[in-house]
Design a protein around this nucleic acid. Structure first.
Length: 739
DNA sequence: AAACCGGCCATTTTT
DNA sequence: TGGCCGGTTT
């Protein structure tokens, strides 16, 4: 090895340094929360490059695309212009499947099926197999299929070990689903791991080639890998066992998704020569926070003891806050944040609010808007989940993959072309009989005797349209989308109604076109297919904008890997955290995962940590008494426990009072949730979060800015009048306070 | 073929 | 509470 440049090590501790410096051979880094593991992986990649390792022989796997992007950025700063592969497991899988499509005997133009698409396909399979007398939902069956794939069980293998009625049903559906998926040339999320893993397992030539190609493999968050991912990691490291994994068993929170904590616990068994480095020095949190989190996690029985230490100051005590009800909690937290900012203690972006479940974001939104506090809800696909965007995406996917049945069925009659349910059913049957894709059958519509009149004409028109558009798929992504929007009649459908909502929808599609343009501007070699893949594989945190000065709201799962100066964890109540599902399961294992989840949330905090709960909470229209989380009881005695319920008690009569107060204060009922948009530096003068004044409606807060030029709309939520949409160019709004 | 309505249902976390 | 499905009407 060459003598490495000084600067790579200057700011590292001896343990970190050892991990970075480690040469050949397997390496396990047990990195406690906040111990700088990302830095270690990044430096290690840079170090390998400095030692003369070829960039293309390094493969680094992260948990999110965002983390991959950041690592790429940092590695590039340390070793400019390198070609190291840095991606998530899923992106890696997609890339391998496309690159080696011919050898693996698959069509490289496959489309990636998200959970919705998958469930639809499972439902179809169910209908076609005539399995509707059973109570198993498509989601549940799809979940079981997903598990099977994670465990690398093919339909036949699964069938052989299916013993009870449920698993036998799953076996039948699995077989049908796989067939449908392959016919549609689709890959579900699990396939992106499962197929490469199987190929590596069954095809030694393929395995050896990739093993030799990726001589150094580094994997972050190893405690959350599932069996398929494990298989990939291990089989890429047989001849060149330079596998470096980093993880923390205390932060394993994805067991429900098939991850297996044994992967990290058994690493030394899998690689007896492995060197183990433990990082226990925490650089993130105050002593108070670290102590509280350590005491909590110590309640887990199935755990290898580990003691985190920090040289940071003691800091403020960890605080628990007791509120009377969920609305008070939301408002109380927002106000506390606002005060902290106004007092100059923190900026908005220093704050994060963590939730166990997404459903809890609603009341928070109202509170944020009410008090003019800027916020972002970190929930990735919300924008692309809108109907209009999904419709356009269906066209795009169908252009690239004509076999995509789910997209065909979505696009074919949107806008309406007179093709109804019955005609489509006939088309699907005919296609199945003739073993054709729906697109091909559509081209043969004239030969299908049962389809006539308007439906036949509509299908003919749709086929012509798609053929025409397909000639343009090599244009830059945003141009293809514009062609689709114009040629398909979708724009016409939205433009001619004069409906305000339709104008909004059009503006949303225009926004997607802008996103595609940005995507293309960043790197002109990227295609439409790349754009679609990025959208599908995006994670929630990928949409997190840490530059915006707003409070971040996200689930505990999304919070992994992040850090914030001040953290609020809401609804620390029995049934929510830990979640009912885990309590009801009666399994310690599941309860311990909830505790780890709580631990992950707590250890995100650098300086202030507030754990909140309410005595009453409305859920699904029902008001229930809530019991504080058992985890709050498990915290050390030096935690500052504050009851801020303001004298309100828990007597029965109080419920009705509270309810009537809630109802009358609920003038905002029925308002759509605020779209989490990044305040755009787009020259419109308006940005989400701003407080503005309107002549008629008074003071309100901007909740959305969309569209461009004459199409630009600004959405404002008024306390009294509710949400209104204005044409930005026309409306007179005075900006009272910047967001 | 498409819009409309009413009852039913489920309720975690995500690449 | 609200989202979805299935039935009914236009």
């Amino acid at each position: 090895m060459f003598t490495p440049a000084r600067d790579l090590f200057a700011d590292l501790t001896p343990d970190q340094r050892a991990a970075v410096e480690h040469g050949e051979g397997p390496l396990l880094i047990l990195a406690g929360a906040g111990s700088g593991k990302t830095r270690v992986i990044t430096r290690r990649v840079a170090h390998l490059l400095q030692c003369g390792v070829k960039p293309w022989s390094i493969l680094a796997i992260t948990f999110t695309n965002k983390a991959a992007g950041e690592m790429k950025h940092r590695v590039d700063a340390l070793a400019p212009g390198n070609k190291v592969w840095i991606s998530t497991f899923h992106s890696l899988g997609a890339r391998l499947l496309r690159q080696y499509a011919d050898r693996l005997n698959i069509d490289r133009n496959f489309t990636i099926y998200d959970v919705d698409d998958r469930n639809k396909l499972v439902k179809d399979a169910l209908d076609r197999a005539g399995i509707d007398n059973v109570k198993f939902t498509p989601e549940r069956l799809a979940g079981a299929i997903s598990k099977a794939k994670n465990a690398l069980q093919r339909p036949k293998e699964y069938e052989q070990q299916a013993r009870d009625f449920f698993t036998q049903t799953v076996a039948r559906v699995y077989t049908l689903y796989e067939k449908a998926l392959r016919q549609a040339n689709g890959m579900d999320f699990d396939d992106l791991l499962y197929l490469p893993a199987l190929a590596l397992k069954l095809n030694e030539e393929f395995r050896a080639e990739l093993d030799a190609r990726f001589k150094y493999v580094l994997i972050d968050e190893y405690q959350d890998t599932n069996q398929a991912q494990y298989e990939i990691a291990r089989r890429l490291s047989l001849h060149h066992p330079n596998l470096c994994v980093v993880g923390d068993p205390d932060q394993s929170i994805y067991k429900w998704r098939g991850s297996d904590i044994r992967n990290i616990l058994d690493f030394e068994r899998d690689f007896p020569a492995a060197r183990v480095i433990t990082l226990e020095q925490n650089y993130r949190s105050t002593k108070a926070i670290l102590h509280a989190a350590s005491v909590l996690i110590d309640h887990n029985k199935q755990r290898k003891k580990k003691t985190l230490v920090t040289g940071n100051p003691q800091g403020d005590p960890v605080r628990t806050l007791t509120f009377d009800n969920g609305l008070d909690e939301a408002e109380g937290v927002v106000l506390r944040i606002k005060q902290a900012v106004e007092a100059g203690r923190f900026r908005y972006r220093d704050h994060a609010i963590f939730l166990r479940i997404n459903a809890l974001t609603r009341s928070l939104e109202s509170a944020f808007v009410k008090h003019g506090v800027p916020f972002q809800i970190v929930k990735g696909l919300a924008f692309f989940d809108r109907k209009e965007n999904k419709d356009i995406l269906a066209y795009l996917r169908l252009l690239i993959n004509p076999a995509d049945t789910v997209c065909f069925l979505r696009a074919v009659n949107e806008p309406a072309r007179g093709i109804g349910k019955v005609s489509l059913e006939r088309l699907v049957n005919w296609a199945n009989e003739h073993e054709m894709t729906l697109t091909a059958a559509c081209g043969n519509a004239a030969r299908i005797p049962e389809i006539k009149g308007k439906a036949a004409a509509g299908l003919r028109e749709f086929y012509r349209l798609m053929t025409e558009l397909r000639a343009k798929i090599d244009l830059p992504p945003h141009e293809v989308i514009r062609e689709v929007l114009d040629q398909s009649g979708y724009r016409k459908m939205l433009a001619e109604t004069g409906d305000e909502d339709d104008a909004d929808r059009l503006a949303n599609i225009e926004e997607m076109i802008t996103a595609a343009k940005q995507f293309h501007d960043e790197d002109a070699t990227r295609t439409l297919a790349d754009f679609l893949e990025q959208i599908t594989l995006a994670s929630d945190v990928d949409s997190h904008d840490e530059k915006a000065d707003s409070v971040s709201v996200m689930t505990l799962h999304a919070a992994k890997g992040l850090e914030f100066p001040a953290v609020y964890m809401l609804a620390c109540e029995q049934g929510i955290l830990p979640h009912n599902r885990s309590i009801e399961s009666g399994k310690d294992e599941e309860l311990e995962e909830e505790r780890r989840l709580c631990f992950v949330g707590m250890t995100r905090a650098m300086r202030e940590l507030h754990l909140c709960h309410a005595r009453m909470r409305e859920f699904r229209g029902q008001i229930t008494y809530q019991v504080p989380s058992m985890f709050l009881d498990e915290l050390p005695a030096d935690v500052d426990r504050q009851d801020v319920a303001g004298g309100k008690n828990t007597a029965r009569a109080a419920i009705d009072e509270w309810r009537s107060g809630y109802r009358s204060a609920g003038g905002r009922a029925g308002l759509p949730p605020v779209k989490p948009t990044i305040p755009a530096g787009d020259g419109s003068g308006y940005a989400v979060g701003q407080v503005v004044q309107h002549d008629e409606y008074g003071i309100g807060q901007v909740t959305d800015v969309s569209g461009f030029g004459a199409l630009r709309r600004v959405k404002v939520r008024f306390p009294a009048a509710g949400e209104k949409t204005f044409v930005a160019d026309k409306v007179k709004l005075r900006v009272v306070k910047r967001g």
